[in-house]
Structures are given as structure tokens and as C-alpha cells.
Amino acid sequence: MTEQSQTHVLVTLRKQRWEVEPGKTARQIMEDLGLNPENYLTMINGQLVDDSTRLKPGDHLKLVAVISGGSYAA
């Protein structure tokens, strides 16, 4: 893992990672990255938060995918 920038926000989704400008909400960041906020939960520095939370420099925004698939067994 590379060192995290103290001036930017680190965004991770499974093995993908981005560095983005701080000051936006988690929802805005997802939209900027072309991701649908309905598909993800947001954790900032390990804490689950609502996606209206604004990101500060040095924050780590982890996106947790919520969609699961598979058979409709029962």
C-alpha cells in the first residue's frame, strides 16, 4: 500500500483506488467517479457514515459494494 496523501482524499473500492480533491461529500465524489451512490455504502476512516458527509484532506473513503447476485433459490 502506498503512502496516503495528506492533501487529498484516498478513495478505495475493492482493489481500485483514486486520489481526489477534498471538500466534497461522499455522494458527490461517487458521482464524479461515475459510480451510482445507490450501489455503495460509505466508510470514512473506518467509520460507517451517511454519504452527505464531507471529506477532509487525508481522509480515507472506503466504498462498500452492496449488490449481491446469485440464484433465487427459495
Binding site: N36, I67, G70
Partner: peptide, 13 residues
């Protein structure tokens, strides 16, 4: 199923 879920989530957004 996953394709439909993503489609429906676009609508939901």
C-alpha cells in the same frame, strides 16, 4: 439479477 439490480438502482437514484 445483478444487471437488473444496477438498472433499478439507476432509477432509484
Amino acid at each position: 439479477t445483478i444487471y437488473y439490480k444496477e438498472l433499478l438502482n439507476k432509477l432509484e437514484a
